[in-house]
Design a protein around this nucleic acid. Structure first.
Length: 287
DNA sequence: ACCCAGGCGGGCG
DNA sequence: CGCCCGCATGGG
């Protein structure tokens, strides 16, 4: 096949793609043959993974014929010094167990706008339904582009497209009470704020800006900071992370979100979000 | 039938 | 500041 090949250490495609990250919600992924196809702007990207003994090879291509290497390197954060990151967050036996079980699970770096919508949809929801809703919104409000086998691929809806959409049509995608947040966020992000320009901000300032978006609270803002802007110190606390943290570090006793934030920051600091992804996915499959 | 899901905004004390 | 509530929808 055409395309270029990239080699990566400690990259487990299935854990990475299926672990509740934005790609989970809008990519077409076939775990049997380990091929993922997803839109990037108005082009389609395809990556084929082959896991070897000590590394994973990725054969990737873009529908516009340009090199897909930059996209793959960036999306899967292949430039990270992953070994050193594991060393830093393996502070105790509990998290080491989670890491060893899902070693190779990467934090992906996604488009800020797409990440914002994905996590607004995620609130008070479950993974399967989030995916269904996002895919439906892509069909309703995205643009059609041609995939690699001549099939149709829908792009992720732009802020402008969702701002212009009727609320009723957004709700038809199954968004429910989140529909009003989606429309409001789309209007805000297409008129009042350029999400891309927030990349230059540090974590604290970025989070402050994100919290101004209707429907974005503490948890969703941390998800956007972590997976949309690559701020690895962001530590999103959802029901699974809260439950898992209480079981792993507080003898099952209830703790406030604020206390857990403080604990995680002290324990893992600038890599807390990386640790969080393991706690989330391990906790979800264990507790 | 009942419970839960990668929470948030608003109202209250 | 913390607490409590309603919120839409579908799958287990």
């Amino acid at each position: 096949m055409s395309g270029e090949t990239i080699l990566a250490r400690d990259l487990h495609p299935r854990y990475t793609i299926e672990s509740g990250q934005p790609l989970t919600f809008y990519a077409d992924y076939n775990p049997e043959i380990s091929i993922i196809t997803y839109p990037v702007g108005n082009t389609a990207v395809e990556a084929r993974f082959k896991q070897g003994l000590s590394s994973t090879s990725i054969s990737a291509r873009r529908s516009d014929g340009k090199s897909a290497v930059g996209e793959i390197m960036s999306r899967f954060r292949l430039g990270d010094d992953i070994e050193s990151m594991y060393d830093s967050i393996k502070t105790d036996r509990k998290i080491s167990t989670a890491i060893e079980k899902y070693r190779g699970m990467r934090i992906t770096k996604n488009d800020p706008w797409e990440t914002t919508i994905c996590f607004i949809v995620s609130q008070f929801n479950n993974l399967k339904r989030i995916r269904k809703i996002i895919k439906g919104m892509m069909v309703s409000f995205g643009e059609e582009i041609e995939g690699f086998g001549g099939e149709t691929i829908h792009t992720f809806p732009s802020a402008e497209a969702l701002a212009d959409a009727r609320l009723e049509e957004i709700i038809k995608c199954g968004t429910g009470f989140r529909g009003k947040y989606i429309k409001s966020a789309a209007e805000y992000c297409s008129k009042n704020i350029e999400l891309g320009s927030l990349s230059k901000l540090g974590y604290t300032e970025l989070k402050e800006e994100l919290l101004l978006i209707d429907g974005v609270g503490d948890k969703v803002a941390d998800c956007i900071a972590l997976m949309g802007y690559g701020k690895l110190e962001a530590f999103p606390i959802d029901v699974w992370v809260k439950r898992s943290m209480e079981l792993m570090y507080f003898k099952g006793e209830k703790r406030s979100i604020k206390d857990i934030h403080a604990y995680a920051d002290k324990k893992w600091g600038s890599l807390a979000g990386f640790a969080q992804q393991y706690i989330f996915w391990y906790g979800r499959g264990t507790f």
